[in-house]
Write a protein that binds this DNA or RNA. Structure first.
Lengths: 372, 372
DNA sequence: TCCACTTAAGCAACGCTGTTGCCAAAGTGC
DNA sequence: GCACTTTGGCAACAGCGTTGCTTAAGTGGA
């Protein structure tokens, strides 16, 4: 297919056209879930003719990606045949490298976790040790993929705290561990495992996971991650927005009190500092209010459709954070005369959201989400 | 072509493919300017084969959109033929409805202003009067488009302060003039003039103008408009980001001082209030610093490539604002260890930026920018 | 039980896209 | 003047979605 050259959007040929439409159909099949979807419905939703859909479906069935699954009740004529995605036709591994723990999940095509492993993690043990440990966990997961003809593994997605360069898969500085600075994680792990590897920030992976579930192809949502730090993953126009330097989502050091207390970043009045300080002194409601104010800024700036909260600190006081942030947003929406407030929810999937999102780094492109 | 249906990305057929590739070539022709670009260079930049480019160029020449313009020096063989866009092949009108003044510009295909009109504006005079006044100005502009075979006019783009719904072209509340609330400006003006009309926020139009000039198809930039209020236009991934409710770019009511002075929006410590207060007391440098802090939040959140400043208040103290905002961003970038600071510039075009951007609402889709 | 009707899905021909193979045109340089 | 390089068009081609028509598989009334 035609390559992409220094920032110029590429020309499109028949191959790209087919890939696009196929991805569209696959995404609708995936979204439909086990209950399936009919050819005609696919035609309506994509805008393609029924005949085009029939051809695409025939190809997908031949490739083992889709299958017929019963029929709907007749509406006066021949009943529609229901089609569904074959989840086992492909798998991907999601690897979440958190500060002290490694989580690895094996996901099928639908993104469902079919196996999971956890292990302690010590970034201070050195790059080689960490990479080897991660590779062993991945191999252990893949060993469970048996069967007469094992379905292909698309690759391994790795999610970890930034900053990093997702296009090249290279880490920048990792706070406290200077040896990791500039480490080419993607290439090293890809060579070690012999599979495709994609590296991204943990917050971006979580945002992708949330976008792939439920959110439509043009949705805008914000995933706010409050753990030992505060960061965000942004979904804009249905896709994760990373920016040219994978820097987008820098939310924690949003200055929200010009003359506030100093933050370790060198600035004053960052949300992260204010929020974590409130949590530290046991004032969860106060932390939620501060987080809500910053979230309000973000929601207004980008016209966000939905806010999702995740991370350990949120998980520890889930109800309080959802309620507190929601209250601030509601109040602001009411003042500004908006028809409806922006919904705030805890990110579904809990602690596994990031790992599942890491797997989606490889799965999502199949469905036209992400830079496939 | 296939329509777009409730948020589902549409299927693509041959017609859409052709439109896309043609727009790509047109955009490169436009970007190349009067100096032109050769067929082979177009092929390299788009990733299409030279033969495909030749066919597209032949079509464009037949339609009167492009022409040959000399040749390059030979590099050992047949010299490349240089092609350029024919600016006069089409025009669009840009209409900027500011609080007290109307600016209308007539732009050719390249976006160059070929005629301009200004008139005082009084929103309090009622919708009918304002629409009629605007229509008269547009007709006066178009009357100047003479010639043996007048080139087609694509339509009229209207830019005005929000909030509004750009998809339907309907205004929401206009502060101080309740009668405008819910006014279907697009349809009323389209019926009156008998041409296509597109309505958008002034900040979005300015952002589009800036994006169409210079910025690549995947650039992220922020246009900050400081006049009687403070707003932003966001370009993300090469296109203007508006959000589902045309609400994106709400930058002025970013809370930047939690316990700050009350703003008329009902909140406390909004940038707009702090910034305008500083200007009012003659402290331009202070205003620039506050604006810089808020801009820093925005830049970090979205990994913005470039910040552009516009609006009357900026224009009155251009050098001070560019320097002040730049200084705050530089300092923050240095603290965060970024390779380079984000450049800050005054938006080129000055007071006419919004009007030119309004015209681009119709021109840009031809070049694959915006939802054409 | 039959038959008219409706709806779904496939077959075949088609139009149009970009691609490939080949050749003419138009230069340079020895 | 000739060999070579580079550009760009012509013609045939593969492959995409579309169109026109046919077949399959139901419902419902006589």
């Amino acid at each position: 297919m035609t390559g992409r050259q220094h920032g110029v959007s590429a020309g499109v040929n028949l191959g790209a056209l087919r890939t696009h439409n196929t991805a569209l159909v696959l995404d609708l099949l995936r979204t439909a879930g086990p209950s399936g979807i009919s050819r005609l419905e696919l035609a309506e939703r994509t805008g393609l003719t029924p005949q085009a859909v029939s051809k695409i479906i025939a190809r997908l069935r031949l490739e083992g990606l889709a299958a017929e699954a019963g029929r709907r009740t007749s509406t006066g004529g021949k009943p529609r045949t229901v089609l569904r995605l074959l989840p086992g036709a492909g798998h991907a591994v999601g690897l979440h490298l958190d500060r002290d723990e490694l989580t690895a999940v094996l996901c099928d095509l639908t993104g469902t976790v079919v196996a999971e492993r956890r292990a302690p993690l010590d970034l201070g043990a050195g790059a080689d040790t960490v990479v080897e440990g991660a590779a062993v966990e991945v191999e252990a997961l893949l060993a469970g993929l048996s069967g007469p003809e094992p379905a292909p593994v698309l690759g391994v997605g790795v999610a970890l705290p930034g900053p990093l360069d997702h296009t090249r898969g290279v880490l920048h500085r990792v706070t406290g561990f200077p040896e990791w600075s500039g480490f080419p994680l993607r290439d090293v792990l890809a060579r070690r495992l012999g599979t495709a590897v994609v590296v991204d920030k943990d917050t971006n992976a979580a945002a992708l996971e949330v976008a792939v579930r439920g959110a439509g192809p043009s949705a805008c949502l914000a995933y706010l991650h409050l753990g030992t730090g505060l960061g965000a993953g942004l979904v804009i126009g249905g896709g994760v927005h990373r920016g040219a330097r994978t820097g987008a989502g820098e939310f924690g050091h949003q200055v929200i009190q010009l003359d506030g207390p100093p933050c370790e970043c060198g600035n004053r009045g960052c949300v992260e500092a204010l929020c974590l300080a409130a949590v530290a002194r046991g004032d969860v409601d106060g932390a939620a209010r501060v987080l809500g104010a910053a979230a309000g800024n973000l929601v207004a700036l980008l016209d966000i459709d939905e806010v999702l909260l995740g991370g350990r600190t949120v998980a520890a006081h889930e109800e309080a954070f959802v309620r507190g942030v929601g209250a601030v947003l509601d109040e602001r929406a009411r003042r500004e005369g908006a028809d409806r407030a922006v919904p705030v929810r805890a990110a579904p999937g809990g602690a596994r959201t990031v790992a599942e999102g890491a797997a989606q780094l490889l799965l999502a492109p199949l469905f036209g989400r992400g830079e496939g």
